[in-house]
Design a protein around this nucleic acid. Structure first.
Length: 110
DNA sequence: TGGATGACCTTAA
DNA sequence: ATTAAGGCCATCC
C-alpha cells in the first residue's frame, strides 16, 4: 500500500454525507494530479473491503460515470442523502465538497 | 482548439 | 491465482 493509496482512502472517508468529490480532486490532494484513473480503480476494487462511500465520488463533469444498474443504484444512494440527481447529473455548485484543503493537508501531513 | 479527465488495462510482486 | 500500482491517450467540455 503506497502513501498515495492511503491518502486516497483517507480523503474518500472524509467526504461528509450529502457531499461529493471528483476523481481529479482526490488524486490532486493525494499529490498525484494525473492519477484520477487510479482513484476510480481504488473505488471499484476496494469499496467493499474498506466500506468506502464510493457513491459520493463522481466525475468532474458532475455526473455519474457508472453505467447501467450500478449507476442507477448510485443515483438512489445520493438522493437518499439529499443530493439532487437529475438524469445522472449532480449540481456541483451545491454539493461539491469544497472543504479546507489546509485541513486535509494537515491531516495527511504534507 | 486545447486542456483536463478518467468505476481501465497491463505489468509486477 | 490474487491483489496492488501506475500510466498514456481517446473523449468531452
Amino acid at each position: 500500500m503506497t502513501k498515495f493509496t492511503e491518502d486516497v482512502l483517507e480523503i474518500i472517508l472524509m467526504i461528509p454525507r450529502g457531499k461529493v468529490m471528483t476523481y481529479g480532486q482526490i488524486a490532486a490532494l493525494a499529490n498525484n494530479p494525473r492519477a484520477a484513473r487510479q482513484v476510480s480503480r481504488i473505488l471499484h476494487s476496494l469499496s467493499k473491503k474498506y466500506k468506502l462511500p464510493w457513491h459520493r465520488v463522481i466525475n468532474s463533469k458532475g455526473s455519474i460515470s457508472l453505467t447501467g444498474e450500478l449507476g442507477f443504484i448510485q443515483s438512489g444512494m445520493l438522493e437518499s442523502e439529499g443530493i439532487e440527481v437529475i438524469n445522472k447529473k449532480i449540481d456541483l455548485k451545491k454539493h461539491l465538497f469544497k472543504l479546507l484543503w489546509k485541513m486535509i493537508r494537515k491531516a495527511l501531513s504534507f
